[in-house]
Design a protein around this nucleic acid. Structure first.
Lengths: 233, 233
DNA sequence: CGTAGTAATCTCACTTCTGCGAAAACCTTA
DNA sequence: TAAGGTTTTCGCAGAAGTGAGATTACTACG
């Protein structure tokens, strides 16, 4: 920005700023899913990504956090320690028929354990699986409003890029230690079978983790070594 | 966003939106550089990235384009065919002492040939080389205002990520055909010597280019094969 | 207790990648 | 026109990565 006298700010009309968030998780079935909520107001009943308008001098991350709390009943402490990630600013002035709105799209990853109880309790919430790069809605609605399908596509793309190289950087897995299989379920959900090579996966990831002396046993098959995140990831 | 009655837009105060752009180039000396301009107004004389406030219903890319035209005298046709790339939204409400401003940072790559004549003509412009991930300013000023150093760091990081894999995706090189050495100068400028392996570079890039039957000769040394961008890059 | 089933890990041949030095092809200058 | 300098390209041996099958170590069930 250029140096300007302070009243210059008032010279220009200003857009409303919205935040939208694709909360992504890996379901118990091992599928990548996104949190949707049923809208209220004039377009009640349709599914959409959570989002709302930015309040005065509010930070984007805080707006995201409050949206999830207010609209989805997700307690704030379910989000602590997790930072929403900016994806894109949608700036088409005709995107929103209510007026001139810029929308900042975000990605937030949450473990399914945090989402499941909340979704079970609120009928206005759903976790839609993502197939072929778009969300499969719970009923006959085909698309999300305001081109939110593109948000999901961008979120998925971002995740794919990260998960090719790094072991669960967004922490779908919350536990301190985990087996390579557990990690594999997450990566498989993100990457899909076309980008999935189990051998390469195990080798690349185990190199980036610290092995613990413990094992996980109890299930069928050979016990699996438990790994821990390496210090700086 | 949730469905809302249309007057809801007016209920909230709205922030000013600024766009800032790191115009990056590779200088004749083979260094990565960024375009700076001397500010006017109350902080006249200090160097900063070009930027201004978004006008009513203006698209971000258009605001960038006009900023460069109005503030730096870059003719619009120097930018045609090139899309600024969003990097980040800076949302700290205290970032700008003039008020509540969100700033959308962008990266735009331009070939040095387009910048050189304009910079030579305008004394308020400079191309600052980037070393150790921050711009080396032309005079005693140490830092850019409003944390614009972070914009440069993000821009550089983004470029590094792309240029490890793909031959000049942002098109520092504008000519139709080029030799691997000419391409190498650009990649070296972006990646720095620590990420530079000439053999790997040649092999990885030549595979992604189409060889032409022409050669470039005239300089000292063996003539170099001229390559062309492959269709979809 | 033995057998079947399952999951994790190891082994090995094969392919690809990497760094380096040698060779090729040109320009300049004497 | 021959020698020297420069730049590009090729060739090779060693390193690293890949995919598939064999092996190991468990649980479940009769």
């Amino acid at each position: 920005m250029t140096g300007s006298s302070s009243f210059e700010l008032d010279k220009f009309p200003r857009p409303s700023i919205a935040v939208d968030v694709a909360v992504m998780t890996v379901t118990a079935a091992g599928e990548l899913g996104v949190l949707l909520h049923r809208r209220t107001g004039d377009k009640a009943g349709t599914w959409a990504l959570p989002g709302r308008f930015l309040r005065e001098r509010e930070r984007l991350a805080v707006a995201i956090e409050r949206t999830l709390e207010e609209k989805c009943g997700l307690p704030a402490r379910d989000i602590t320690g997790r930072a929403p990630r900016q994806l894109h600013v949608f700036d088409d002035p005709d995107r929103d028929d209510r007026g001139w709105v810029l929308s900042v799209a975000h990605l937030l990853v949450l473990p399914i354990e945090r989402l499941d109880p909340v979704v079970a309790e609120h009928p206005g919430l759903a976790i839609a699986p993502i197939r072929n790069d778009h969300a499969v809605l719970p009923d006959t609605q085909k698309q999300l409003p305001y081109g939110q399908d593109e948000i999901i596509a961008r979120a998925h793309e971002e995740l794919r890029r990260e998960y090719l190289e790094t072991p669960d950087p967004e922490r779908f897995l919350e536990t301190d230690t985990f087996t390579l299989s557990e990690l594999g379920v997450v990566h498989f959900a993100v990457l899909g079978k076309e980008n999935w090579a189990i051998d390469t996966f195990r080798r690349k990831m185990s190199r980036q983790l610290r092995e613990t002396s413990a094992e996980k046993r109890g299930g069928p098959g050979r016990p699996a070594a438990l790994f821990r995140r390496s210090r700086h990831s």
